[in-house]
Each structure stands twice: as structure tokens, then as C-alpha cells.
Design a protein around this nucleic acid. Structure first.
Length: 467
RNA sequence: GGCGCUGUGGCGGAAUGGUUACGCAGAGGUCUGCAAAACCUCGUAUGCCAGUUCAAUUCUGGUCGGCGCCUCCA
């Protein structure tokens, strides 16, 4: 497996610490609102990473956190976090908001046919671990206290700017950022925030420094270490995390343990809507329900994600989703051949069915080149559509579909048979055609089309396919 | 102001120092009762200007444009 490693800025071969195990941490959702399609792009891509590693006979151990506390709206926002803000918006408590959107997220993952991570730890369930980690940092001399919380002194971690190639001094020239004057360095970040004096938060805990809540960054370090160890193989997330969140994670983790935090860093690039980024403030979010409401399948959405390469910025258009839906139908038509083998058809001539998922995985092993994998699958589909399927190949064909599904998650092996009644209609239509009763044949064809079944008349008989 | 990415046909989107994948849409064809589907063929696609090279879309420099991050963000 070769992956682009943000640490070295090049594609490297993956050498896990303890093969065949590969430990993977993904920065997951903040559960304060519905995730938009851009969020899902990222998560589907890591789902594909895990699937690819499994197909390569690795044993990935995948942890994705649920941020349900501490993610600040902004540093200048007097300590309000997204969960508390969501609670105000919905007239609920922060706890209720977190629970609702956590359930929604997990449910949606399943609807998208994503693998379930080995752990989905919540920040609020790991307050103790976070406090301990801050205490270690305190003992190591990396922290200081100001009026609103405990902060990490980034000037004490000399490699701070290396990961993201930041020029910390130049960033001070930026006009948009309002820095807290109490902080020693502008890049310093909160480890523990005190509850505001004038009102009670829904979520707050006692700590050695006073009642409050953890800063956002510390949760990922604490939970990654708890579930995967002090040094993990792959840490992953959206590209926006590179300069701040991941930079801070490295600083606080390595300052605490003295060990390398993560050996490979992966970052997915963003998807744009036309020329705009997706953002709640622009009001252009698209959620899964919008896609379903327009009649598209979530498998088509998954296919759309796979049609672009994860390190490039890509563009979402409804036209592109339409194209993906059509492409999905092509794959499903191929899959439907399993129910209609035709005697006398010779074996698939170019390569064996067993080799196809292997080749697919081989392509993906080069830095998850999903577009190239789909190009290959489309060529395969074309060849199978030309030759069709003989009875002797059926077992191999089904195994192929199952293994393609394991790596791409497109549910091709779930394409079901048509009913006996529908088969009877097809037979009836063939009889009508033989007796030149074209009106009846066309009428029966319409009946099938209305039931979502397309008809293809070939030299060796009628082939149906899902519309 | 700093850091970084990027510019491929009508749309999406890969790859590559030497016929520009793949999907969608479009045109023509084969097949068909018709249609559809399937399959085949096609479109003079690599922002612009230089440089290196036998050869650049690919490497280098410049230029113009787009985008992201440095605020919350996948």
C-alpha cells in the first residue's frame, strides 16, 4: 500500500508498526448539526481506505471520534461551544443535541453502507483521560493558566510550525484574527476552558484547575492514545485540520509522550459547490436527505465520491450526480446477469473473474486512486455486457461481485432477481414477438418498465436490467 | 500579508517526457418488428509566454486565472 504522507509530502509505502495490524484514527464529526455532503466525502474516503487495507490482508483497526463537547465557535466567542449554541437554537440541552446528531450520524453511516469503525468514542466519555493528559503536559512544563483557561505554550515545542510549514510570525500580520491578549503566543491553544462566571453550561466538569470543559484538540490525542496507543500508523482527517487541529495534536501529544504521535498523515481535500466552498454561513449546505429527495440513490453518491481523487479539490454538481447514477445503473445491470445466465456462452475471454477484484485492489493500493479503479470496473462491465454470462461461470461471477463490494461498498451483490410474475411477462412478451404481435409485445414492455425493469433483446434472448 | 493547492473536450474527472483513462451528455453506425439496451466509431480537450529536450499536457521559470488555509469548518 502506498499513501501520500503529509509529514514528508510524498507518496510512501506503508510499513505498519505491527503488521498486519494498521491503526487508523479519523477526526470525526462534531455532532451539533446535520453533516453536509462535504463531510461525507471525507468519511467515505476513509471507509474506502479501511476496505482497501482489508482487501490487501491487513487488519485495520479504525477509530473515529465523536466530538460532542468543546468545539468552539471561535476563540473570541467567550467560550461558547458548538453544542451549547446548537442547544440554544433547538431549545434543547447540549446533551440532547449531541445525542440526536450522534444517532443521526451513525444511522447515516449505515445508510451509506460505510463500515462501522472499531470504536466511535465520544469526547464527553473521556474527560478523565483528557484531564490526565493535561496534567502530564503541566508536569512537563508546557502549560500556563490565564483568566479563561489552561493553555499550551507552543513556543516550548520547537517543532510546532514544521508539520504545516507555518510561518507563525507572518501569521501575526493577518487582519482577520482577533487574538486573546493574555496568551503568550498567538498560536497557543486552550487545553481546558473554565465555565463562564455569568451562566451555567449544560456540559461542565470539575478539574484540578476549576469547573469547565476540555479544549477541542485534546480529545483526539487522549482518545487516539487510549484506543490505539501512543504511536499510531495513520492519522486522518480533512485538509482544513492540517494547520491548526493536527498541528496542535502533534504538539500536545509528542510533548506529553516524547514519542512520534502518528507515522502517516492523510488529508482529504474539499469538495466545492461550483466555485464556492460548502459552508453553513453561505447557506449552501446539501445533506443526504436532499439527495434522496431528488430521487438519487446513496450508492450513486458514493460512486460520485469515488469518481474523484481524494487529494484534489473536486466540484459537486447535480449533473455529476446524475452521471454517477447512470454509471451505477450500468454496474447494476452487469450484476443482474447473475440471475440470467444463458447456456452456450463461452467463458469470459480476457481475464478471469477472480482476478478482477484483485486488480481493483492493486489500483487502489496506489494512494487510493479510486477514479482509476472505476475506469477499470467500467471496462470490465463493458466486456461482460458484450459476452454475457454462461452457467459455468456463475459461481466465479458471484464471488467477483462480493469481492468488488468488499472493497468499493456498492452493494452490487445485493441486486436481486425479478419476481415469477415479471418473468412470466417476459416470456409472454417473447411469445408475442414470435407471433408478430407487436402491439402486445410493446404493451408488456411498458408494464415492465413501469415496474422498474428494462428490457434488452439480444440474439440469445431477452435480458432484463434494473432501471 | 504569509503558507499551500490548482488550471485537461459541453459537464465531471484520471493519467502521462512520445496514440490525452473512465463516466455522463452529443453525433454516426451495427443489431432490432420498432424502440430501448448493448456494442463499435467519432469530436482536432491539456489557460498563456518562454526555457530544457529529438519530443512537454507532463520538467523549469514567468504570467494570467481559480481555490483552500492562516477565524469555526471534512
Amino acid at each position: 500500500m502506498h499513501l501520500y504522507n503529509t509529514l514528508t509530502r510524498r507518496i510512501e509505502e506503508l510499513f505498519p508498526l505491527n503488521p498486519p495490524r494498521v491503526t487508523i484514527y479519523t477526526c470525526g464529526p462534531t455532532v451539533y448539526d446535520y453533516p453536509h455532503i462535504g463531510n461525507w466525502f471525507t468519511f467515505i474516503r476513509y471507509d474506502l481506505l479501511v476496505r482497501t487495507l482489508r482487501s490487501l490482508n491487513y487488519e485495520p483497526m479504525w477509530v473515529m471520534n465523536i466530538t460532542d463537547v468543546g468545539h468552539l465557535v471561535s476563540d473570541a466567542d467567550e467560550g461558547e461551544d458548538k453544542l451549547e449554541k446548537g442547544a440554544r437554537r433547538e431549545h434543547k440541552t447540549a446533551w440532547e443535541v449531541a445525542e440526536y446528531y450522534t444517532d443521526y450520524f451513525i444511522n447515516s453511516m449505515s445508510k451509506l453502507n460505510m463500515l462501522t469503525p472499531d470504536a466511535l468514542p465520544k469526547a464527553t466519555h473521556h474527560i478523565e483521560e483528557q484531564i490526565k493528559l493535561i496534567q502530564t503536559l503541566e508536569a512537563n512544563g508546557y502549560t500556563y493558566k490565564i483568566s479563561d483557561g489552561i493553555y499550551f505554550d507552543t513556543s516550548k515545542f520547537s517543532r510546532y510550525a514544521e508539520f504545516a510549514k507555518l510561518d507563525v510570525d507572518e501569521q501575526q500580520a493577518g487582519k482577520r484574527v482577533q487574538f486573546n491578549p493574555e496568551k503568550r503566543n498567538n498560536s497557543d491553544f486552550a487545553l481546558w476552558k473554565f465555565s463562564p462566571k455569568n451562566h451555567n453550561r449544560d456540559m461542565e466538569w470539575p478539574s484540578p484547575w476549576g469547573v469547565g470543559f476540555p479544549g477541542w484538540h485534546i480529545e483526539c490525542s487522549a482518545m487516539s492514545m487510549k484506543y490505539l496507543g501512543e504511536t499510531i500508523d495513520i492519522h486522518s482527517g480533512g485538509i482544513d485540520h492540517l494547520p491548526v487541529h493536527h498541528t496542535n495534536e502533534i504538539a500536545q501529544s509528542e510533548a506529553a509522550t516524547g514519542k512520534v504521535y502518528a507515522r502517516y498523515w492523510m488529508h482529504t481535500n474539499h469538495i466545492l459547490l461550483g466555485k464556492d466552498k460548502i459552508s453553513k454561513s453561505l447557506g449552501n449546505s446539501i445533506v443526504l436527505e436532499d439527495i434522496e429527495a431528488k430521487g438519487y440513490d446513496l450508492e450513486a453518491f458514493r460512486l460520485l465520491v469515488l469518481e474523484s481523487y481524494y487529494r484534489n479539490q473536486s466540484i459537486f454538481t447535480w449533473e455529476a450526480l446524475e452521471a454517477a447514477q447512470n454509471r451505477l445503473q450500468d454496474y447494476r445491470s452487469m450484476a443482474a446477469l447473475r440471475w440470467q445466465t444463458k447456456p452456450g456462452i463461452k467463458d469470459f475471454p480476457t481475464f478471469s473473474y477472480e482476478d478482477i477484484p484483485i486488480e481493483l485492489t492493486r489500483i487502489l493500493a496506489h494512494d487510493l486512486n479510486t477514479p482509476a479503479a472505476l475506469a477499470f470496473l467500467s471496462e470490465v462491465s463493458t466486456q461482460i455486457n458484450t459476452v454475457l454470462l454462461g452457467p459455468d461461470s456463475l459461481d466465479h461471477f458471484i464471488t467477483m461481485l462480493t469481492n468488488i463490494d468488499k472493497v468499493l461498498g456498492l452493494k452490487l451483490s445485493s441486486v436481486g432477481d425479478i419476481t415469477q410474475e415479471q418473468k412470466a411477462i417476459i416470456n409472454e412478451r417473447e411469445q408475442a414477438r414470435k407471433s408478430n404481435n407487436w402491439d402486445k409485445a410493446d404493451e408488456l414492455r411498458n408494464v415492465l418498465n413501469k415496474q422498474g425493469i428494462g428490457i434488452r433483446d439480444t440474439a440469445i434472448g431477452t435480458i432484463w436490467f434494473p432501471l
